[in-house]
Nucleic acid binder design. Structure first.
Length: 413
DNA sequence: TCTGGGGTCCTAGGACCC
DNA sequence: TCTGGGGTCCTAGGACCC
């Protein structure tokens, strides 16, 4: 029988902002951007939530519901920083910690009783220690499965601890809306409602053949979840061995939709550069390139291409994503969002060395130099000639490091 | 209301291979 | 001529999470 903790930071982004500006405390605060921007709420203070503001709500809607709220852009670097501090605190309690996102984590505390005491006592100490080190509140759910621990931390909010004792999982879940089950969103909730299923208890009473007929494999997983089990491949595996990313992507939504090829391709190149940069940071090579487009009416299309040879180089990702873009776009429909990404990672190096063209080796060296300078002086210190349609590899050789204003920045011609 | 950006996982058809 | 079964890869789309 396992003892799983789910630790969830309370109003994380807002709370970090309050640490840097205590005058925000107790006020309606919305992190996500200016009130008139195209975008959604990333986090809302409890005060703002009283007015119906919640995450994922369009900012403009939030401004109508709560006109007096303070709207902040937020500081992703600070959140990442504090996320590391949180991770550090959790590691004091168990070596088996898995950050599920910036502000939440699973921990395996099985067999720590002799050291930390019974679960509630350990959770209490964790609570205090978290506040002491980070200045932040968190909620802790304790159970025998990840699923139930997660649901119980949710029920414990804010700043609470909730332990669902072994054997009581199904009883705990039964009265809750099916929507509380991680993995059940709007669509599944509606489908279940069509069958009169609203509460987790309703779900738990159904027989498996029925669920399998109506929902396939997903139905069987749902049945398990309704009893508190970590069903499906989702939650499988030990806590803590889930490190490396499986995909890396960047996307951009324009302030106003655009059909300007120059603007679109320059943006795409910039995004591809960021992707390549992160690929090199991880020392990954990717062999699948993805493109994403979203039109005014929000219809979204994706294209992807498996490369014959994996890469981590700017010019190759730029060329491939641009190729996908030119194939996918009709050249006139205004575009709201453009994005690119990679997947299919290999950690390799080695056998390729000999096959690597001299051209790519030089591009690689040039990019390594650029990465080092960016590490030192910041992302904007170096600008590559990426908006260009010319052969980037050649450009990179001629002018590997173009300081702002000095590099070949003429994008038009 | 008018919908970000970064991810994960699942499904499903067709290609291709044995 | 009619016609297997299974496995894996590729691609597109979609649900969902924070």
């Amino acid at each position: 029988m396992k003892t799983i903790f789910h630790v969830d930071m309370d109003a994380f982004f807002v709370s970090v902002e309050e640490l840097f500006d205590p005058s925000l405390k107790g006020k309606a605060v919305v992190v996500g951007g200016p009130k008139d921007a195209r975008g959604v709420v990333s986090a809302a203070s409890y005060e703002a939530r009283k007015f119906g503001v919640h995450s994922a709500l369009p900012l403009r809607t939030a401004a109508k519901l709560c006109p007096h709220a303070i709207f902040l852009n937020g500081h992703p670097d600070r959140y990442r920083d504090y996320s590391h501090k949180v991770h550090g605190v959790l590691n004091e309690f168990s070596p088996k910690v898995e950050m599920a996102s910036v502000d939440e984590a699973y921990m395996d505390l099985t067999g720590t009783e002799r050291l930390l005491g019974p679960p509630l006592q350990a959770a209490h100490r964790l609570h205090l220690r978290m506040k002491q080190v980070t200045g932040l509140n968190c909620s802790v759910g304790i159970a025998t499965s990840r699923l139930v621990a997660k649901v119980s931390s949710d029920q414990a909010k804010p700043n609470g601890i909730l332990w669902v004792q072994p054997g009581l999982e199904a009883n705990f879940l039964a009265p809750l809306d099916v929507r509380r089950i991680p993995g059940v969103g709007k669509v599944t909730e509606q489908k279940l409602k069509d069958y009169g299923i609203r509460k987790v208890g309703d779900l738990a009473r159904l027989d498996e053949p029925f669920l399998r007929r109506r929902f396939g494999q997903w139905g069987l997983a749902l049945a398990g979840k309704s009893h508190g089990m970590d069903a499906g491949s989702w939650f499988d595996g030990d806590i803590g061995d889930n490190d490396d990313p499986k995909s890396i992507s960047h996307e951009h939504t324009f302030d106003t939709d655009t059909a300007e090829p120059m603007e679109l391709e320059a943006t795409l190149a910039r995004l591809a550069e960021k992707v390549a940069r992160r690929l090199r940071e991880h020392e990954f090579h990717a062999n699948i390139v993805h493109l994403k487009l979203r039109y005014k009416d929000f219809t979204t299309l994706t294209r992807s291409k498996t490369l014959p040879q994996s890469t981590q180089l700017d010019h190759e990702l730029i060329a491939e994503s641009r190729h996908l873009f030119r194939q996918a776009w009709d050249g006139k429909t205004p575009i709201r969002l453009i994005g690119t990404g990679v997947s299919g990672f290999e950690a390799h190096e080695g056998q390729l060395g000999l096959l690597d063209s001299e051209k790519n080796q030089r591009a690689r060296q040039a990019l390594a130099a650029v990465d080092r300078i960016r590490d030192k002086y910041g992302e904007k210190s170096v600008k590559l000639a990426t908006g260009l349609t010319a052969d980037h590899a050649e450009r990179v050789h001629e002018n590997p490091v173009g300081l702002p204003g000095k590099g070949p920045r003429d994008k038009s011609k």
